[in-house]
Design a protein around this nucleic acid. Sequence first.
DNA 1: CGCTTTTTAAACCGTTCGGTTAAGAAACCT
DNA 2: AGGTTTCTTAACCGAACGGTTTAAAAAGCG
Lengths: 117, 117
Amino acid sequence: MPASNLDTTFAALADPTRRAILARLAQGEASVSELAAPFAMSLPAISKHLRVLQRAGLISRGRNAQQRPCRLEAAPLREVAEFTEHYRRFWDESFDRLDEYLRELQAGDDKEPRRKH
Amino acid sequence: MPASNLDTTFAALADPTRRAILARLAQGEASVSELAAPFAMSLPAISKHLRVLQRAGLISRGRNAQQRPCRLEAAPLREVAEFTEHYRRFWDESFDRLDEYLRELQAGDDKEPRRKH
DNA sequence: CGCTTTTTAAACCGTTCGGTTAAGAAACCT
DNA sequence: AGGTTTCTTAACCGAACGGTTTAAAAAGCG
């Protein structure tokens, strides 16, 4: 069963190292060694993470002498955003319920008590 | 090291069966058997998927006689949406690279037929 | 050409994942 | 009580994951 693009995108995003790499790339291109520097793991491990990100379409790679600079490609994240949008009304709803609950809790000791309705 | 919220949320969303379950729950509560009906897999497999979704905070469960009805809990999806928002400017900026990505996607879909969406 | 730098490939290892089957619980119904 | 329905647990299996170490490839430089 071939993985859909959302499958591979979500799977790629499920690792904190890979999300940190994306966050770093949001500030500009970087080489593999630059990307690896903040992490306490071997270079091959980072190389594997980069391959996962690339196969998910989240980064692209160039050539600059021995370096293989990485660049952020955000298109799959747009699909993720569209996925979550389908559920927005549900967390809006629960926020409303939470908001109402918190207002009830604070109704007693609030300086400006807000009555419901 | 405990997995962060985003870790478990993204990991839960990386499976198409689990995303389909969430889509179903967006239309209202459902029992385990009802959720299992569309899938060609055993009930224990669905039960495991539900446990993954629950541990990710994406569903909650109640009791109704023998049934354990599932309900969508969208709060983690809000965190996912916030995550992607940090990258919105990158897909807003470059439509040319989006085109390139989509063309790559099309090219790679020879043996994996494009799923819905 | 050798030598260094940067990155990847290969092989391996333990854990997790996604599924199965078979058995156990828990609540309902006569 | 016994039986049925609904769901979960337990044990197992193969494949994928995330890391390691070692070795090799590719490009620049003396």
